[in-house]
């Protein structure tokens, strides 16, 4: 589990209201999507930089 997820889960566990719990649930989803997009962009960047046809 990465640091961000760990912290979000911690905040969610300590949430005292329904709305606060909902906030950290939604934040976790946004954070997951952010991590996925970063991974995809890094993958694309690596793939394009190591494009043999440009060598």
């Amino acid at each position: 589990m990465d640091w961000l997820t760990e912290q979000i889960q911690l905040q969610k566990e300590q949430a005292t209201t329904y709305e606060e719990q909902a906030f950290y649930t939604a934040l976790q989803q946004a954070s997951d999507e952010l991590a996925l997009r970063i991974e995809q962009r890094q993958g694309e960047l690596d793939g394009r930089i190591w494009n043999a046809t440009n060598w």
């Binding site: 961000l4 979000i8 952010l34 991590a35 970063i38 962009r41």
Partner: peptide
């Protein structure tokens, strides 16, 4: 302090994505 760190970390990652998008 914990929530502030969370916010800063999220902001850093958002900048990282913006930067990667620009490079791609």
């Amino acid at each position: 302090q914990r929530i502030t760190l969370l916010s800063e970390q999220l902001s850093d990652k958002r900048s990282e994505l913006t930067d990667l998008n620009w490079q791609v």
